[in-house]
């Protein structure tokens, strides 16, 4: 759409945006960074702890499965917290520290699923389950496939 075609208007908008940028308060930088740091660090540490515990209890299981198991534990805990209604408080505190780990992925899924329960389990929950995490799964599959295909053809060429 060609709006604001007038150069005068465009320049006014530029001035206004510059002004807004100058007066808009930004987050307390150090504080929010610190919060993201410790919330994220703590989540990873808990993941590590579960891994070590599982290694101790099930010494026969392969390393790959142990890693999966600790991820699953974190996911389950995050989803339970979401259900009980206090994961969002962690999110408000931790920012990136809470949405970047796998727990944030789980929270995004469960929160969308719960939110749209009112539209029914099929048209609400089932349709909207991926409304927030969809980009992660789609981009993940697309770009990992691309990387794998590059490997495949490179191997073909080389060997």
């Amino acid at each position: 759409m060609a709006n604001n075609a007038d150069t005068k208007v465009r320049e006014r908008n530029k001035r206004y945006n510059k002004y807004v940028k100058a007066v808009t308060p930004s987050s307390a930088f150090i504080k929010s960074l610190f919060n993201a740091f410790w919330v994220g660090g703590l989540t990873c540490t808990i993941g590590q702890l579960f891994g070590d515990i599982y290694r101790l209890i099930f010494p026969d299981l392969g390393e790959k499965f142990i890693v999966n198991l600790s991820s699953i534990t974190l996911i389950t805990i995050a989803i339970l917290f979401t259900g009980l209604g206090f994961y969002d408080a962690i999110g408000r505190k931790g920012g990136a520290g809470s949405f970047l780990p796998i727990t944030g992925f789980a929270n995004a899924m469960a929160s969308a699923s719960m939110e749209f329960k009112t539209e029914g389990l099929i048209l609400g929950t089932s349709v909207k389950l991926f409304s927030v995490v969809g980009p992660v799964i789609v981009n993940g599959v697309v770009w990992s496939s691309v990387v794998a295909l590059i490997y495949y053809f490179a191997m073909g060429v080389i060997g």
């Binding site: 999966n68 991820s71 699953i72 996911i75 389950t76 989803i79 339970l80 979401t82 259900g83 009980l84 209604g85 796998i102 992925f105 789980a106 899924m109 469960a110 929160s111 699923s113 719960m114 939110e115 329960k117 009112t118 389990l121 929950t125 389950l129 799964i137 993940g140 599959v141 990992s144 496939s145 794998a148």
Partner: peptide, 26 residues
């Protein structure tokens, strides 16, 4: 391959989200 490798996490997340949805509301 990608989904096969991560199937544990995605599967559990879907299942747990569904169960939690049955029990709790926003």
């Amino acid at each position: 391959g990608g989904l096969m490798e991560t199937a544990f996490g995605i599967g559990v997340a879907i299942m747990a989200s569904y169960l939690v949805t049955l029990i709790f509301s926003s």
